[in-house]
């Protein structure tokens, strides 16, 4: 376990980082960004794999399987959806030259 205070530091700094990263975002990018952040929490896949990897009983394996399948869905779906949205911005970005 990451030590108590260290954990608190990590948590707090990460929270500020998230706040800062999004606070400068123009409204037009809110949906893609929401989708992008939705993709980023797909990192839950890593945890799901660890959980399934350490599961021993059948029930644990079932939960673990669900976790991995869901998490993979989150990551993969989140990526493609975000990418499809941002693809469009590329073309209009070249044309319109951002305001």
């Amino acid at each position: 376990m990451i030590e108590g205070m260290t954990a608190l530091y990590i948590f707090t700094l990460a929270a500020f980082t998230g706040y800062e990263v999004i606070s400068r975002v123009p409204v037009i990018l809110h949906t893609p960004l929401m989708s992008g952040s939705n993709f980023v929490h797909g990192i839950v896949l890593v945890g799901a794999m660890i959980a399934l990897g350490n599961a021993s009983t059948e029930l644990e394996k079932l939960f673990g399987f669900i976790a991995v399948a869901f998490a993979a869905g989150n990551a993969v779906g989140g990526y493609f959806v975000t990418e499809r949205m941002l693809e469009m911005f590329k073309s209009s970005g070249n044309k319109g030259e951002a305001k």
């Binding site: 990460a14 929270a15 500020f16 998230g18």
Partner: peptide, 10 residues
């Protein structure tokens, strides 16, 4: 922890 929390606050 970090990725989750960043998304949480954002």
């Amino acid at each position: 922890i970090i990725a989750g929390t960043v998304v949480g606050s954002a």
